[in-house]
Computed example of a mutant assay.
Amino acid sequence: MKTKIQSLILLILCLVISSCSSDDDSSSSSDLEGQWFVTSLLVESAFDFNGDGNASRDLFQETSCYDGNFIQFFDDGDVTIVVDFTNIFVDSNNEQDFECQSGLALSSIWTQNGDSVTVENGNEDITGLISGNTLTVTVPDGFEMELYDPAIGHYPAEEDFTIVFTKE
């Protein structure tokens, strides 16, 4: 499905951007070395996929799709990204549902300038910011899903999403 593939690519890009940030303006690239784990993935719409009665915009809280996902920074400028995905769709009862998609591992290179980190991504580099032990990146219209409205039926939707990584 085109939207699922585009969503996966954008998620990966966001993960790459987020992982390339520094701890603060005075931090060195050695502060980035190590694993940064996904601790939040915010979308604009709220869902209650975990059935606790509380809808949340944080897919990390609502699904187990991102448990153990990380970015690994190496001192030689390489970065490895290990990430899974969430496919959000409308089921046969016209209810919102999701499924976790198999993981993906890829490599790229990163550079740092103060608290800004840039990851090379083909023709379009991605930049993220770091604050303390947290990496944050926002991708406009980067999360694609399928929604349902009884008046118009099934329709695709794009939303901004923000990924937060934490270095443990």
Rank of each mutant, 00 (worst) to 15 (best):
G34P: 00
N133K: 08
L106N: 03
A157Y: 06
I17H: 10
T138R: 13
T111E: 00
D75V: 00
E158A: 14
F49P: 08
L41Y: 08
S92P: 03
N69P: 10
T134E: 15
Y148N: 06
N50Y: 04
L32V: 07
A55T: 07
D78S: 12
C100T: 04
I81M: 15
F74V: 00
M1C: 11
D24C: 10
V139A: 13
N121V: 01
A105M: 12
F70Q: 10
S107D: 11
N113S: 08
A55D: 09
D23W: 07
D141H: 01
L135G: 12
D31C: 11
F47Y: 14
W110E: 00
I5T: 12
F60P: 03
L59Y: 03
V16Q: 06
D115G: 11
D76H: 04
M145L: 14
Q101K: 09
D76I: 00
N94W: 03
A151T: 02
S21R: 03
T166I: 10
W110H: 01
I12L: 15
D97C: 03
S22G: 15
S102H: 06
G142A: 02
D97W: 02
E124S: 07
T138G: 12
E95L: 04
F161N: 06
S7I: 01
G34E: 00
L104Q: 12
A46I: 05
D23R: 12
E44M: 14
V164H: 11
F85C: 14
I71C: 13
S40K: 10
S102K: 07
A55L: 12
M1N: 10
L41S: 08
T134Q: 14
Q35H: 09
V43S: 08
S102D: 06
I126W: 11
S131D: 13
T39A: 09
D149P: 06
D91A: 07
G103L: 10
